[in-house]
Design a binder for these strands. Structure first.
Lengths: 192, 192
DNA sequence: GTCTATAGCAAGATAGAC
DNA sequence: GTCTATCTTGCTATAGAC
């Protein structure tokens, strides 16, 4: 059985994903979700137990997509340096920031184990995956032989997340771009 | 004329600073501020026009302190590398994050020019100051001669801000410590 | 499945007594 | 300066009709 258009449940999840990205969990009301989804009060509470359940579905989907997108870059053909560069330089909505990273600042999300879990897992996976790529690059002679894959993976993730913060503070994208450029320069400059 | 103890106005500002740090602007209510300050409703509205005015005073003070603390490290005696290391390795409440950087994720703060201004200025100053120190270090032969001070300053700030994000996601401090260690290793490794 | 009505409660602020 | 009472609005959810 197929529906002709995107159904209400689907629109509710997508609206929630957008609002969580734009405003966060605490600042997002059920009413705002309903309006954006074009759904009524009763409709929303028919499909979901409440704001929390909706957020859970939204966060899980966003985490899944983020991971798939990152893995596409990091598992692409090319050298380790090329893959890391591709990942860092990918087109991003810098002013909107990271839809998962921003949840980290939401006290009600972090206080809820179920809402928190996808956030935690996403970053754990990302650091591990980056460390693998960095280790491969080091072993292939692309980077400094003394490079610590895990520490450097933490740097790469932090530069992205922090780049968003600084860019938002400046109300411009270029601090983000500078940070990305800067870390790539540090990473790939010629080895002794 | 001196008051024997810290007065109400002062306690209100300090309570607001704490709550903005812990929960952000949107999630902080006047009632919560009053309770933490041990002040009544009428007392708060006597001293401040409302939540926004209080937040403005709190944010400005926090920005001022953050800047003074950073400048103390960055203007300390020692080489550029030592000062940057001292700044990055200073004792921090990693799980609480940056009291200014977190405001960046608060839609209502960023939408208000007056509340936003100290956030913007703090980061603008910090990047400039770090770039000065990095340029001095490069000119003194401490870093790679090809180092871009502005881009690298953006990296340093981003690593801090992003380090907080990743540490909160992991519910542990070590991703932050790894990022700091990693970026210092990239920065100070021997030049060709 | 979706709608409207209703409800309890908190946010944010004002008024006026003391 | 501080207190209590009051007000309006929005949040979040439930109830029951359609």
């Amino acid at each position: 059985m197929y529906t002709a258009t995107v159904d209400t449940q689907e629109r509710l999840i997508e609206s929630t994903r957008e609002l969580l990205w734009e405003r966060g969990y605490v600042a997002t009301s059920p009413k705002a979700i309903q309006q954006r989804a074009g759904a009524g009060q009763g409709s929303m509470y028919h499909h979901f137990a409440g704001k929390r359940e909706l957020a859970l579905a939204a966060i899980r989907r966003t985490a899944e997509q983020l991971r798939a997108a990152a893995d596409a870059e990091l598992s692409a053909p090319g050298t380790a340096a090329q893959r890391i560069t591709g990942y860092l330089r990918r087109d991003r909505e810098v002013q909107k920031g990271c839809p998962i990273g921003r949840l980290t600042q939401d006290p009600d999300v972090m206080a809820d184990p179920l809402l928190r879990e996808p956030v935690e897992q996403t970053f754990a996976w990302l650091r591990t995956r980056l460390a693998e790529v960095l280790a491969a690059g080091r072993d292939a002679g692309e980077f400094d032989p003394g490079l610590d894959p895990r520490a450097t993976a933490a740097v790469v993730v932090a530069v992205l997340q922090g780049g968003y913060v600084v860019a938002r503070a400046a109300d411009r994208d270029d601090p983000f771009d500078q940070a990305v450029t800067g870390v790539l320069a540090l990473l790939t400059r010629p080895t002794t």
